[in-house]
Simulated assay, not measured.
Amino acid sequence: MRFATSLAVFFFIYLQLINACDSDLFALQTKGTSGFVFTQYLLFSSDQGSAGTCALKCFRTASCLSFTFTGVKEPGNCRGHDQIMVHSDGKLPAAAARSFAFPYKGVWRMKSCMSVADCGPVTNVMCFRNLCVCTAAFPIYSESLNQCISDCPDSSLSSNFMLYLDAGIDYNNLGDLENTTEDECKAACVQSTSFTCRNVEWQDSNGLCHPQNVTARTSFDTENSAGWKFWQRHCQ
């Protein structure tokens, strides 16, 4: 009981700090993101009364790593994202908006890196194309465990994905969807009913989308996949 009380007090103070928006102890304000909302990697858009309640919603959502609060009373003033948003991500002007990231919550995932040491003290992770991602032997990110695992039951697959740049899996395409956007390609995978889609390959130049039901453990091609984005589904 004493521990639960202490935790409640800590989190109350944590939320007060967020509402004050003046401390790096509770969240890292992402450089260059004040005054914008982001259009990519959106998990939710909801109405919240303060930055503190917006932070709490993100904190309670397993795959939420960063959030933006616009500070105005309008629909969707709290936006949660499954990646740490940076100034180069798609964004729209919003004068009062400020974005925050949780520095300790799965922060290694999709983090920029020069070597695996930049990904932190986690196992089964590699620095691939300057992003921290799961290795081919443990290719699936578990949202509940915040670590890379070797496999995931079909019923536990998430609607979120991990990105591998210039990569793919040969000879396992179960469809050829043309002229799709990146989000449409991933949505087609999640909504597939004829087979369990575990990943997609998407080509930016022509919108070609290849749904697949295998993982990177099957055959991971990093030599002949320039211009392709490989998205591996998470496990819940």
Rank of each mutant, 00 (worst) to 15 (best):
N130Y: 03
C58A: 15
K91I: 07
S45M: 00
R129M: 09
A27S: 09
I84G: 00
G49E: 14
T70Q: 08
Q29K: 14
T68M: 05
C21G: 12
Q29W: 06
I140V: 15
Y104D: 14
D118G: 07
C119L: 10
D22Q: 09
H81C: 00
S34Q: 11
L65S: 09
S66K: 07
A101N: 02
R98W: 03
D82G: 05
F128I: 06
T70H: 00
S115H: 07
S46R: 06
L65A: 05
Q29V: 15
F26C: 14
W108I: 08
V122S: 01
R79C: 04
L28I: 12
R129F: 05
P93K: 12
F128S: 10
L65K: 12
T30N: 13
M110K: 07
F128P: 06
S99N: 04
G32T: 08
K111A: 14
T33D: 06
F36R: 04
D47Q: 08
K57T: 05
V37H: 00
F26R: 03
H87S: 15
A101S: 15
A55E: 08
C54F: 03
F59I: 05
S63Y: 05
P103I: 10
T70C: 05
F128G: 04
A62S: 06
R98P: 00
F128H: 08
N124G: 01
F44T: 14
F128Q: 05
K73F: 04
G120N: 01
V116N: 07
P139N: 07
Q83G: 03
F138K: 15
F26M: 13
L131M: 12
F67L: 13
S88V: 12
Y41W: 14
N19Y: 01
F26L: 11
D118K: 02
A27L: 10
V72R: 11
D118W: 02
N19V: 11
A97M: 03
